[in-house]
Design a protein around this nucleic acid. Structure first.
Lengths: 222, 222
DNA sequence: CTTAATGGTATACAGACGTATACTTTGCTG
DNA sequence: CAGCAAAGTATACGTCTGTATACCATTAAG
């Protein structure tokens, strides 16, 4: 049947399944990890009978995976859109970070749970999130490669760096959400981090002595 | 009274309190977050009566804090020792990272739980771990400043970078534990990350044009 | 040696939980 | 409209949990 509204479409009444996913997000965000939630607790929060849970999910791990998959879709979709409307070299990174921060602002619970479960207890969930991060990082690496922003760096290094960057950005969103008054500062900080990381990597990879000289030069300065 | 052995002294029989802390670490490492554990579950794992828990802790948050405090002590102690026997400029960073990795190897459960709870549901626990990271990062920043490894970087930037580095190292320990055959690779990777980050930060801070030139130069190269 | 506190145990109970079974409602499809 | 599968509900039961109360064991102090 797949009745009512199983997808995230707004404007139509949400299905029981969607209500449960929302309830899981809300509860997990404010109290504890996804698999630590209770079936009854979820039903209560969603305004449904406890047993309704089993009409849609086999167990909590199943629901957790569904939550993560929804999160992955909702985050990657706008990222892919941004990718297609390729921006200029200078703005590429900033725009991407801003997009992630914007997503976090619109889906604070989802972002919080996502980062949390990255180090959570369920291997399946962890792996799914890592996979999402790998994909996003891969896209980022490709874009930077195409735009020739990272000359001298081989693909493997690029991927490693991109993954670190994505993880760092995700973590930053938590600070971003928690300290609304410091948002500009946090955005600036994370962009500086990314720039420093790539500039440093390029310097070390293409010409190690140059980097050493940079340090010595700076030492002599004032 | 403080009888038997409440501290982590080996060679003497562990007190009930210590048994409970160990049990919490073991259970949280393999299954779920600290506050999601059960009082009875803990007693069972520790081989104690359920009620014994209340002789030492008021609730699970109390026990969680005790776990984190023990972890902080056990990690910072060897770090401080290393700091006192100041190493050479070149080896400073590598030695520190190796020390953290070695700690992780000796206390895998503690490390896992520590990283997990960094993004966990309990604000008190999170803050305690952040505080520990801030302290370690502060030490690292001081050391690098004393050794003049980061010329041109102001204290604020140094702290920010050091915190990012420490968090990154902590995360790496999880991969380090999970993939024993890739340990050398992971160590190399994290050291390269640290070098790149600081070299890049110095380049951008002391002489932005130099960094731009670096990129242009690398572009022309081969 | 008494005493009092501390650490550990035994028993008990009310409530929450997961889930099985059976029933009703909803909405599509022929 | 009939029929049927999916979605949601009601009730029920056994298990587990948190914790209260009361009872030993050990030890340090008077």
């Amino acid at each position: 049947m797949t009745s009512r509204n199983d997808r995230g479409d707004t404007k139509t009444a949400p299905s029981g399944r969607q209500k449960l996913l929302c309830a899981a997000l809300k509860l997990a965000a404010r109290s504890r990890s996804l698999q630590a939630l209770g079936v009854r607790e979820l039903g209560r929060e969603a305004g449904l009978n406890p047993n309704t849970f089993y009409r849609h999910f086999t167990d909590l791990d199943d629901l957790s995976m569904a939550v993560i998959e929804e999160l992955s879709r909702d985050l990657r979709q706008p990222l892919q859109a941004l990718r297609r409307s390729i921006v200029s070299r200078e703005e590429n990174v900033v725009r991407t970070v801003e997009l992630v921060f914007d997503f976090a602002k619109r889906n604070p619970d989802a972002m919080l749970v996502g980062v949390r479960e990255l180090y959570g207890a369920s291997p399946k969930v962890r792996e799914a999130l890592r996979e999402m991060i790998r994909a996003v990082a891969g896209d980022l690496a490709d874009d930077m490669h195409v735009m020739q922003m990272t000359p001298g760096l081989d693909d493997r290094t690029m991927r490693e760096l991109a993954e670190v960057v994505v993880v760092q950005v995700f973590h930053s969103t938590l600070d971003y959400l928690e300290h609304p008054q410091r948002r500009d500062d946090i955005l600036r900080q994370v962009v500086q981090f990314i720039n420093a990381l790539f500039v440093g990597a390029i310097a070390l990879r293409t010409n190690a002595p140059v980097a050493k000289n940079l340090v010595s030069q700076a030492l002599k300065k004032p």
